[in-house]
Simulated assay, not measured.
Amino acid sequence: MDADALDARWRAHLESWAIPARILDGAAADPWAHHPHRFGVRSDLAVAVSDRGPTMTRVAELLPGSLLDVGAGTGASSLPLRAQLTSLVAVDTSAAMLAELTVRADKLGVAVDTVEGRWPDVAPAVPSADVAVAAHVVYNVPDLADFLRALNTHARHRVVLELTHRHPMSWLGPLWEHFHSLKRPVRPIAEDCVALAAALGFAVQVDEREAPLERFSTIDELATSACRRLCLDPSRAPEVADTAMELGMWPVPRDRWVTVWWNV
């Protein structure tokens, strides 16, 4: 398949993850939302532990230098490299996430320029950098070919992506079937992103490892998250916890994290 066909297939697979209106209309909160506090905790841990898995290693190989972090969140993929950054530009759709990143960057003595908006819509306003990184973002990107092309044109030396092997909401499949009789999709998966990047002409290389973090620290945390993702009332958390235990979903197995990278 050529790049256009692979891009269309990626978009179609992502669209299949849409939550039916009959379920979404009953949601007490946005089931797709991400909370800055939870992301901030993970960023703090990444800074404290100085994890050097494949993604950090591939970025650090081209530093000291400038870094463009797209879908930066609160800085988990950039701030651990603070000592090697000559400049940092962080792009994210969430002003709250960027605010949390800025607080952490200030404490660490990292000068950061933030750009609020969706990539690649804001790309014309963003400077190039030695390395461009986008971690745990692509499953939110329907037009992946344009996203990757813009990363490639903004990186002087290397592009690095990190993503889970499967869609990050895949772990919820048994609960969707139990509570809503809804079977969730299987794709897209990391191999689909790799195939598209290769079809675009990038000399893609891939590293993989087990996720360094547990998804949840307690069954109660799982249940609270699952209620929101499943559009269930928060009061049903104990029922969700019991069901997860009955279905053998606790503890949740760690994801496989895939690092996709190429030199420009």
Rank of each mutant, 00 (worst) to 15 (best):
D146W: 03
R52C: 09
W176T: 11
A111D: 13
P185S: 09
V159A: 07
H178N: 04
Q205H: 14
W176V: 11
V112S: 02
W17G: 06
P251W: 11
P20K: 07
W17P: 09
R38F: 12
Y139W: 06
A223M: 05
R38L: 15
L151P: 00
H34Q: 14
A29T: 13
T114P: 02
T86L: 10
T153F: 05
L67T: 08
L88C: 01
A134T: 10
D7N: 15
A155K: 08
N140T: 11
A21D: 15
V206W: 01
A29R: 13
H13G: 04
A27M: 05
P253R: 07
Q84D: 12
T153S: 14
R104I: 12
L85T: 03
M169S: 11
T164C: 06
T153Y: 04
D121A: 15
A3F: 02
M1W: 03
F216R: 02
T114G: 05
A105V: 10
L213C: 03
P188G: 07
L163F: 04
D207M: 08
R256M: 13
S78F: 03
H157K: 13
L151I: 07
N140I: 01
F216P: 01
G65H: 04
R11I: 07
L182G: 02
G71I: 08
L151D: 02
L144V: 12
T218W: 03
A155M: 10
L14C: 06
A150D: 03
A129Q: 05
E15H: 10
L24V: 11
P251L: 12
H35I: 11
H165Q: 15
V133Q: 01
W250M: 06
H13S: 15
A134Q: 03
M1A: 15
S217E: 14
E214H: 14
P234K: 06
V206E: 00
C227E: 05
A197K: 01
P127F: 04
R42T: 14
